[in-house]
Amino acid sequence: MHCQPHYKGQVYIWLKNKQNCLLCDEPSDSPLPLCDPCADELPWLGAQCMHCALPLPTAGLTCGQCLLHPPAFQQVIAAWRYDFPLDALISRFKHQAKWPFGRLMAELLAQFLHYRFNEGLPRPDSLLPVPLSRQRLRQRGFNQAEMLARWLGKELQLKVAGDLLRRRLDTPAQQGLDARARRRNLRQAFSLTGEVEVEVAGRHLALVDDVLTTGATAQALARLLMDAGARRVDVYCLARTPRPETRD
């Protein structure tokens, strides 16, 4: 069953020269529907863990969790902390199907990734959206991670392997669970459905999701891909939660 929307038209006039800011409704100073003052007030992620992007007081460090248990993924690339007003934008995109907010955040993340690529971050061979369970996909009607991956793939000219990963178990929602419970929740939850030798073995892959909290989902998927022969797995997401108490 494919519930992912395939709307071919524009959600709004994305290339229009004059647009209003989606946050304050004032005229935008750029082709994006976001004015410069609102862009400056977004919770941009500063100093962070070199692997999982957990916000830290000083740049260039690795958090205690990654030191004790090195993750299967190489690096998390996130543009923002999961904080106001970005948390509201993600929630409205994800739970209320406000696609313009998702499109805006994907465009900004693409610009951020362009900058990181120019600074030396290796470009992946493919983008892989984090899959939803069939039950949650039916309830929501779309997979926000797949929509983000499609937008990013178009902006970055990267292949999107949307059908490579499958969530085979309808596990309980991750929200509200601590790190240990999240890991238990995800045991054997994912599988590969594509041609592993062609799409995974020896390739650099990037998982795409909206928010990274404990990293349990990213860890489970990265481990699956690395065990299948991937050369490197990164994680691209909109936001990283700044709450270390949710980690274990």
Rank of each mutant, 00 (worst) to 15 (best):
R247K: 04
P37G: 01
M50D: 14
A179L: 12
L108T: 01
R203I: 00
L15N: 08
L177T: 00
G194F: 13
C3D: 03
P33F: 01
L205D: 07
A218Q: 00
Q139K: 14
P70N: 05
W151F: 08
A59S: 15
R134L: 14
L132M: 13
H204M: 02
D125Q: 14
V235Y: 01
W14Y: 13
Q74I: 02
S91R: 12
N20L: 15
L128A: 06
A106Y: 03
P27V: 04
L61W: 03
N17S: 09
L56E: 09
W44G: 02
C52Y: 04
A216P: 07
A228T: 04
E155W: 05
E146R: 14
D209C: 13
H6C: 10
P71V: 01
A47N: 11
R166L: 06
I77A: 12
L56R: 03
Y12V: 07
D248T: 08
A145S: 15
E107H: 13
V196D: 07
G162T: 10
L34G: 01
L23G: 00
D40M: 11
R232F: 03
D170T: 11
A222N: 03
V233H: 04
F142I: 08
V160G: 09
L56I: 08
V160K: 10
A97I: 08
L177V: 04
C38T: 05
A230E: 14
A145W: 08
G64L: 09
V211H: 01
R167A: 03
A110P: 11
L127Y: 09
E197T: 12
F142Y: 15
A230L: 00
G176N: 05
T246K: 15
Y82K: 02
E155L: 10
K154N: 12
Q135I: 10
L86H: 02
G162M: 04
L32E: 12
H114W: 08
R232C: 08
P71Q: 05
L207V: 02
K18T: 04
V11H: 13
L86A: 02
N20S: 14
L23K: 02
D210S: 01
L148P: 12
A181R: 10
D248V: 11
R240F: 00
V11Q: 08
H51R: 14
T58Y: 14
P242M: 09
Q96R: 15
D40C: 14
A59V: 05
P85E: 03
G194R: 01
